[in-house]
Design a binder for these strands. Structure first.
Lengths: 217, 217
DNA sequence: ATTCGTTTGTGAAAAAGTTGACAATGATTC
DNA sequence: GAATCATTGTCAACTTTTTCACAAACGAAT
């Protein structure tokens, strides 16, 4: 990559999606006390080819040493910076059914730079109760908190029928990236990112292969 | 598609992954009382181009009518059959932390042909307790149940450090498709399918765009 | 019956993404 | 210090995926 380029290239989204996996694997290597890793070794751990990893990283700079590989700490540092994870991001969570509560209690978000700062639900029975020391508030207070805290990330864990409405309100309040657990594709304006968590769809895409195996073993 | 072909074509996995989304959207249309839909209309609901939908479906046959579109019931029936969802699939769930419990309580699996028939954990405090009328059993009973019931699908919701071990045991017991919620890429032999649910990675892939926006607004 | 407005299924073109292959280079060995 | 070994970064080749564009087909309207 041209080290003098000021205008950043448009990085393919597939590449961006792989970076967090690289980062996480590097933290695991770090915890195992491994100081240096080749693209080959890293690739084996995550079932990605060495060439792919090198190509992906080359979008952002030159982080390795020929003959040696990558310094784990340094490469992790670079990817952390690229992903904007030197800071911690405030996140709101909407919907506190069983799933929402599990999300609220999961420590993995906080440990990875994602700080849940607001819990919202529209069930009066839940409003006012606490999860991990954070109060569940009424949906209608959502906009205010998002504005005050400058929140730009949200997690949606409401039923499918409510998801689009919730997404619309989040976006109008200033949220720019949404992780959606509802089983529906929500529409958002340009400049807003959505990713879907869809376990049923993922399982269904696998039953296809199982059914086919059964048909002709 | 050649209607006389006996040997089924190798369908690209990207296509297979989209089918469940089409199917779900068709059930929503059905619930709304809509009888007929064009690739254009279907595409708009899920942010996919009309051409893509037509191309995807053409791998499996001809399901539409020129000038008209697709009959919702019929197309849904076809996709349901293609995905092997005319039957209900037994599934085992391993790991009953907050997340596992939320999964066990989620009705969406059962309502979509995925029947959780076994819950497993290694925490003695949990073993013997019930969730939705299903007992949590000791990990060591896993293999037996999988064999007895012919289970080929599993959901893994254990900590990252335990995931590979659990996956290995599931596979050796006969499981052929795994939905993995643990934040680690698990290795499986050929012929076994794994899909990952990775909310933290998905959020991290979005902080990339947020951070970049911040840098140059 | 003919025309008109739609919409499918598909072959071909275009775009996007992955892999191959190798010069360049850094460390290590002899 | 020359030779050897390992591994990067990258250009080009290749593969996969998406989009285009249009003939064929269907129903409705005249």
């Amino acid at each position: 990559m041209d080290p003098l380029s000021i205008e950043p290239l448009e990085i393919p989204d597939v590449v961006v999606r792989r970076l967090p996996i690289y980062a996480r694997t590097l933290t695991y290597l770090q915890q195992e006390g491994i100081k240096s890793v080749s693209s080959q070794q890293l690739g084996e751990r995550i079932s990605v080819t060495a060439a792919q990893i090198r190509k992906d990283l080359s979008w952002f700079g030159e982080f390795g040493k020929q003959g040696i590989g990558y310094d784990v700490d340094k490469l992790l540092g670079h990817i952390t910076r690229i992903l904007g994870l030197t800071q911690s991001w405030p996140v709101v969570l909407v919907g506190l059914g069983y799933l929402g509560q599990a999300i609220a209690r999961y420590e993995g978000f906080r440990h990875n730079g994602l700080n849940i700062v607001g819990l919202f639900d529209n069930d009066p029975a839940k409003i006012g109760t606490d999860i991990n020391g954070l109060a569940i508030r009424a949906d209608r207070e959502m906009q205010a908190l998002i504005g005050q805290e400058g929140v730009r990330l949200a997690i949606v864990a409401v039923p499918a029928a409510k998801a689009q409405e919730v997404v619309d309100r989040l976006v109008s309040a200033g949220v720019r990236a949404i992780l959606n657990y509802a089983p529906i594709i929500t529409q958002v304006p340009d400049g807003v990112w959505v990713r879907h968590i869809d376990p049923v769809a993922q399982l269904h895409s696998m039953t296809y292969y199982l059914a086919r195996e059964e048909a002709q073993p």
